[in-house]
Nucleic acid binder design. Sequence first.
DNA 1: TCAATTTATGTTGCTAGACAGACTATATTC
DNA 2: GAATATAGTCTGTCTAGCAACATAAATTGA
Lengths: 167, 167
Amino acid sequence: MTESTQGRPGTTTAAVPGDLGWHLGMVLRGYQTRFEAAVAEMPAGIRGFQVLSAVVHKDPPNQQALGAHLAIDRTVLTYLIDTLVAAAVVERIPDPADRRARKIIATESGRHTLAVYEDRVAAAEADLLAGLEDDDARSLGVLIGRLAKNVHRTQPGASPCEAMDNL
Amino acid sequence: MTESTQGRPGTTTAAVPGDLGWHLGMVLRGYQTRFEAAVAEMPAGIRGFQVLSAVVHKDPPNQQALGAHLAIDRTVLTYLIDTLVAAAVVERIPDPADRRARKIIATESGRHTLAVYEDRVAAAEADLLAGLEDDDARSLGVLIGRLAKNVHRTQPGASPCEAMDNL
DNA sequence: TCAATTTATGTTGCTAGACAGACTATATTC
DNA sequence: GAATATAGTCTGTCTAGCAACATAAATTGA
């Protein structure tokens, strides 16, 4: 990789304000394209995968926590989960302790589905990072993760699941 | 939140496929929130700023190039530029060499406006990165920039996200 | 030169998705 | 037990983006 970006001491900060936004947008776009292709056949696509993944790995106690974690509006989450329930990858089960709430759990089939798509998603992520050296890709992942957790902590709409943040 | 750690002992990279997407989404969300606040009074908001900034710094020869650079659909670009023209920050001038094309140039007022908002945007970006050490923030900027250029090179213009907010 | 094709931009209308607000059911608090 | 808060759902509205069409101008090719 050439040092076309920066490398000279005097110009190490962003040359133009707003570039960070452009960079983020581009990277996200690249990610989205690859991700979309990877989970195209999954019910509800990207978001379906994200919900299923969060359900399995984060085990949120109710829909509100799930929505807060993924920053998905609760009204959106409703029909998103409807789709996943129809595809039999998750179930809504009433919380016995609080009958207002419903817990979303993955079915056996759902766990299997997730495993399949996780491989594809991992490949998509590797493909996105393919242009970087391994070390660089690793540090980028670490730094983005740190930043993301900062944002998630300080951002409104992420209240009730802070316990899940520290993974 | 127990299962996410169990499968891959000693892993150094992202534990769960899909995490990169979550991280990117979070960071973009944080950026967007700050950016939105910073350019709230600017005509056409975030995109208005991005267009104006690209016009001044990239000097694209026509709308198509401008749209491709920002990954904004040309039909969207039309009314986006309409707004900016109405606010007198840019002008459409016909390209004398190709009268189909129009070149977008910033007015004096537009350049001044841009200068004002660039300061705010720079502050917003600094605020987003405030949680990281200076060195880390710098490397993150460099790495994201490299990755973004990779993506931009391999992906001919398509649809944006802003979504940003969405993912 | 003139018709066919391509390119640059603008316009219209459709659709999906996001969000606000109303509504139901349950919990909590005083 | 009345008032208030919370979880989830439903409904309506609004917007962004896209496809499809329109227009004008450049290019190509006979």
